[in-house]
């Protein structure tokens, strides 16, 4: 499909200026879908110039702002902490704002698709509700049984704090869950992100509902569905060792020690 090109001067986009310009020409091949227009999803190519040290998100903005305002995606922080813009970039789940164009082989067309396994609503926007429901289902909040709240803070040793540090980093971007073949086949599976967030509480020395959470994850759609394919760990933009966390939950289920 032809790319609609605006007159560059009218758009006023910062463009290549000098001879030793850092700009290169790239092609973004974007999976597009808008049920208001057509029931079919299609690929659309956009060609433009950009400094390869910029983010894929900057490229998407270039398209949206200067070429085609209908291109639709979520984003907010633009530096990898809000979890809005997980997408499949060259076949791998990544955050568009944490992926530099130079690192993903810009000589070839860069493919950009919505994350898999959640219903696509428009272009790169998917329905996140089932993902958040699975998260809410593991009771992701501190539960304590003490009747009198302590007046000061609860004490926790640095070692106990370290025990669940990795899984506190989660930004609920869904990159892990939507890279998981088990989840693609069966949307009922809790998915790695929910397990990561259960881990965050099960291994918190202050929490007293570990047993309950483990029972939830012992379910048919729980941790035992995991096939240890490591896709989730590879996908996680926060560098969380997702597979390891799942393994620790499995072990806790067997030994009932955590």
């Amino acid at each position: 499909m032809a790319t609609p090109v605006l007159d560059k001067d009218a758009a006023g986009a910062p463009g290549p200026s000098s001879a030793e310009s850092p700009y290169i020409t790239v092609t973004f091949r974007v999976r597009r879908f808008n049920p208001e227009v057509s029931a079919e999803a299609t690929w659309e190519d956009f060609q433009f110039e950009i400094d390869p040290k910029e983010r894929v998100l900057d490229g998407l903005h270039k398209i949206k702002w200067d070429l085609d305002g209908t291109l639709t995606f979520r984003r907010s922080c633009a530096h990898g902490i809000c979890g809005s813009d997980a997408m499949r970039i060259n076949g791998k789940n990544r955050l568009a704002c944490k992926t530099l164009i130079k690192d993903i082989n810009p000589e070839k067309p860069i493919t950009i698709e919505p994350i898999k396994g959640l219903t696509v609503l428009k272009d790169l926007v998917v329905d996140m509700e089932p993902f958040f429901q699975a998260y809410r289902d593991v009771m992701p909040f501190l539960i304590t049984k003490d009747t009198n709240e302590p007046t000061r803070e609860r004490l926790q040793s640095a070692e106990d704090r370290e025990r669940f540090d990795d899984t506190t980093k989660c930004i609920l971007c869904a990159a892990c869950t939507t890279s998981c073949p088990v989840f693609w086949n069966d949307g009922q599976y809790f998915g790695p992100a929910a397990i990561v967030n259960a881990h965050r509480f099960i291994f918190d020395s202050r929490d007293e509902a570990g047993e309950q959470r483990l029972e939830i994850l012992n379910d048919r759609d729980g941790v035992w569905r995991c096939r240890t394919t490591f896709n989730c760990t590879d996908a996680c933009p926060r560098g969380i060792e997702v597979t390891k966390a799942i393994a620790e939950v499995k072990r806790a289920l067997i030994t009932r020690r955590y």
Binding site: L142, E149, Q156, S157, A158, R161, D204, D207
Partner: peptide
């Protein structure tokens, strides 16, 4: 802290 926030510890 009581709501569960994992502060760094002394």
């Amino acid at each position: 802290e009581k709501m569960g926030l994992p502060f760094n510890r002394t």
